[in-house]
Design a protein around this nucleic acid. Sequence first.
RNA 1: GGUCCUGUAGUGCAGCCUGGAGUGCACGUCGGCCUGUCAAGCCGAAGGUCGCGGGUUCAAAUCCCGUCAGGACCGCCA
Length: 604
Amino acid sequence: MRTRYCGLLGEKDLDTQVTVCGWVAHRREHGEHLAFLDVRDHTGIVQCVVDGALEARTEWVVCVTGMLRRRPAGTENDSLGTGTVELTECTLVVLSAAQPPPFPVEDRIEADEALRMRYRFVDLRRPRMQRNLRLRSKVLESLRMSMVERGFCEVETPLLWTPTPEGAREFVVPSRLRRGECYVLPQSPQIAKQLLMVSGMDRYFQVARCLRDEDLRADRQFEFTQLDMEASFVNAEDIRRIVADMVQRAISCVTGSHPDPVSTITWKESMDRFGTDKPDLRSPMELIDLTQCFAATEAKALSGPCVKALVVKGSGGAGQVGISRNTLDGLVEHARKLGGKGLAWFRVKDETPGSVELDSPLAKFLSTDEQDGMIRACNVSAGDTVLVVSDAWRVACEVMGGIRALLLSGVAGQKPANGPGTGADGTGEDTVQGRNMSLVWVIDFPLFDGVDDAGNLVSAHHPFTMPHPDDIGLLDSDPTSVRSLAYDLVLNGWELGSGSIRIHDPQVQRRIFSALGLSDEDAASRFGFLLDAFRYGVPPHGGFAIGVDRLVALLAGESSIRNVIAFPKTQTGYDPLTGAPKEVSPAIMAELGMSFRGVRQGTG
RNA sequence: GGUCCUGUAGUGCAGCCUGGAGUGCACGUCGGCCUGUCAAGCCGAAGGUCGCGGGUUCAAAUCCCGUCAGGACCGCCA
């Protein structure tokens, strides 16, 4: 039927007869003898010159056969890839008429997202969404190729699975044949892939669907995709090298330019310098430690065990006053939301020639030495603003990290950065080319993440994460300072994925379970099948999982992963296209031996 | 469970703060004109439960309360 794609036609095809198929993007009528039809397929648009009497309206599906000619001089269109040519002497076959679309099939108009989901089949026709889905396919292809070339074997693991020790709420699937019992959908193939290592698969990977029944966000959907991998007889560096190569190759495959080498930072250093375990390194802005400076201060607001500061540079001109009071008030409020007691601020002024002074409600509580010390440590000059938090180390870091992220997102006149909650403005003009990609490994995470209500330690990663060999001795004496062989890959402030070396030594595993407050019986009942498997010869192993949705969203310049997923759900887990979730028939419920109590919550 | 933003014609918006007739703009749709446009142009027409419910008021798109839907975020997501 078709001999060419619309958007690929060019001067090389001049004076040949071609047939294109697609949707009518625009129709421009010039009376009964002339009309222009822009025919669109996924490659682009070509102009067809047709008789004005031919009926073909917007979004009708047509097949046009004609001669490709150079456009008459002066009628070329620079903004169209095929703008120097057009199809003439056309015969047009209408393959399908169409109602007017519920919203324009153009990137220019940003339709309501619920409406886009209701008519997702039309939404996906838009060039931006076509580009996103095809970019996703290219990324997956590249990732798969990297895995296969390195000897990884693709294995599919069950979707109907069993509860596992990970932390997320699971989707439950009632069993018909075993009435009263349920499967759960896997949050990740974690346990299955470790079993595959016991099986001698050596190197496994999978483009795995993962399901978690947790609240949705711009970067979270119930179902999401991981490039999941696991390898035997490797150390953490081996895994990181494989993953970094794979991700860099995927990035360069869609951007055309090779990203910078992946830097590495320890979790402790990342918290100290950037106030987060997923630092966005595209900005040089770092936290400054002022703990020493205020070690003996009279100012109660700055007398905490740790003092962290950020400097917001002014534009350097004379008479600068720094950040406005309004913006500062917003930052203070944000600091409280982040768990801080508040946020101190100091605006640097130079009202007296040759020296600077600090404009702040707190200035009068600071000694001259403390003021000078802060000015020196922060290397500030007139027009700059210093933001300071004093609290326990972790709180101080996290609050300032949150403030840093807010500043980088464009508050206080800072340059906007692409990342969570920011980025693409929906115009589709934000292209992949030249996008700055900053990849960083965060390593040496703490093995435990605090203590739960019952006084038991809580795994930071999962209970099979190997403790750092240098810290095994601290397991009993100082467990919260034990590091693990877990590592995260961070891209522009987004956690792209995480992995670890797993425990394969039953002695170590028992000590970890005990620290987590798990008895042998508890462990056996929750994941006994894995521990059982480990008794039959388990190789040392470790792995990683890459969040494909987030990777693609970052590469596409999208601030929501919904724009790189064909059929996503709304924030309340509703699918406006299909109406899911829905009630099921009484017959099905009866077969499952189930009934619902009380009224239905959703409204459909 | 919570905080915030949004809801007005098929679509995107303005009107709301400061109450006075469904008030307006652009696109689209339908009809007419038009032989070189390309976000075509010109003329005309149709198209509205101002999300829904209640309250205040002589009078509510506008103010108040509730509710539903969408979105951002917190909690949650090892």
